[in-house]
């Protein structure tokens, strides 16, 4: 008698577990086949010299030679890694600020808001890596750009930079950063599409009641922004930061990835390429871990 209800309760729970696992089963299979196995193989290859034959691949254990090759002998790779990391550190804050600010503007009510949103999100559609790569070396864009690319159409960035350095007396490093930031505006706009949408969605999900309560207490718009909007949106800053870092990491403007691809299909071979991607992954993981560690401590969770 007492066995039957116990068994029934057990089966209900087990059934819930089994059904749940059935739903996520495709991911588990895919993860094992197309992630864990290739990842382990990548580690294995990075320690071997690889030769392809018609019937398969042959391996020769070379210990850390591939890593040495990538780090100390290849003339470009280490430099490109440092370049990428530095550009990442400079670009990501700008992308976050820009997308947040734009989302705040697009969240206000004004005429043509829909049109503005449609245009601002356009880069997500149009910046395929190959189109962006062609743009970077385009002849016509360079001719036309004499008026627009280097000077953004409104002012000459370099002259303005010199003005700030000589006349206003800002330190050179600050001016250089601002100049490079101004020159990077098109790229930042291009990288900000998804983040902008995420922030926009976040801004719209903040309960109205919070602002009304603040207003009753006599808070100004400025105070409401820093004490309500900013903390409420801060989890999304973390999400967007990680997304931006990753997007930058795998993006078309990234020179370290070029090294990895060149090595794979060039003279250096798969082993060195795998070693390079290991080093690259390690470098970027460190950047992501540090930034997440710094930012997540300041994140505020409403619930």
């Amino acid at each position: 008698m007492s066995v039957i209800p116990r068994r029934r309760r057990l089966t209900l729970d087990v059934r819930h577990q089994v059904t749940g696992y059935l739903f996520i089963m495709p991911f588990l299979i895919g993860f094992a086949l197309f992630f864990i196995v290739p990842f382990a193989q990548s580690v294995f290859y990075s320690l071997h010299k690889l030769t392809l034959t018609p019937t398969g691949a042959q391996f020769e254990y070379v210990r850390l030679a591939n890593y040495e090759r990538a780090l100390f002998i290849d003339p470009l790779f280490t430099r490109r890694i440092f370049e990428t990391v530095i550009r990442m550190v400079l670009t990501v804050p700008l992308v976050l600020c820009f997308s947040f600010f734009t989302a705040a503007v697009l969240n206000q009510k004004f005429k043509g808001r829909m049109a503005a949103r449609v245009v601002f999100f356009l880069p997500v559609i149009t910046s395929s890596s190959i189109v962006v790569a062609l743009r970077g070396s385009d002849y016509i864009a360079t001719i036309m750009g004499t008026a627009t690319q280097a000077s953004l159409g409104f002012f000459d960035v370099d002259t303005l930079g010199q003005f700030f350095e000589k006349q206003v007396g800002l330190p050179k490093s600050v001016v250089d950063y601002l100049v490079s930031a101004a020159n990077a505006i098109p790229e930042i706009v291009r990288l900000s599409g998804i983040q902008m949408l995420v922030f926009l969605a976040g801004l719209q999900s903040i309960p109205r009641a919070l602002y009304e309560a603040a207003e009753v207490e006599g808070s100004t718009g400025w105070e409401s922004f820093w004490l309500i909007t900013f903390p409420m949106i801060s989890p999304l800053i973390l999400t967007n930061m990680v997304y931006t870092l990753v997007d930058f990491f795998v993006g078309p403007s990234n020179t370290a990835v070029l090294s990895i691809r060149d090595a794979a299909f060039g003279a250096l071979g798969h082993g060195v390429s795998c070693a390079m991607s290991m080093i690259y992954f390690a470098a970027v993981s460190v950047v992501i871990a540090i930034s997440v560690g710094v930012v997540s401590r300041r994140v505020f969770y409403y619930n």
Binding site: G20, F27, F31, F35, P38, S277
Partner: peptide, 30 residues
């Protein structure tokens, strides 16, 4: 579904997002 280990599996979903395709490209190719 509140499956056991669900959070762990979901963090692996996020992991697949942040590992660049170049990382596993060659083994995948082979």
């Amino acid at each position: 579904y509140r499956i056991k280990g669900g959070n762990l599996w979901f963090s692996l979903v996020i992991l697949t997002l942040i590992v660049p395709p170049e990382m596993t490209l060659i083994p995948q190719y082979l």
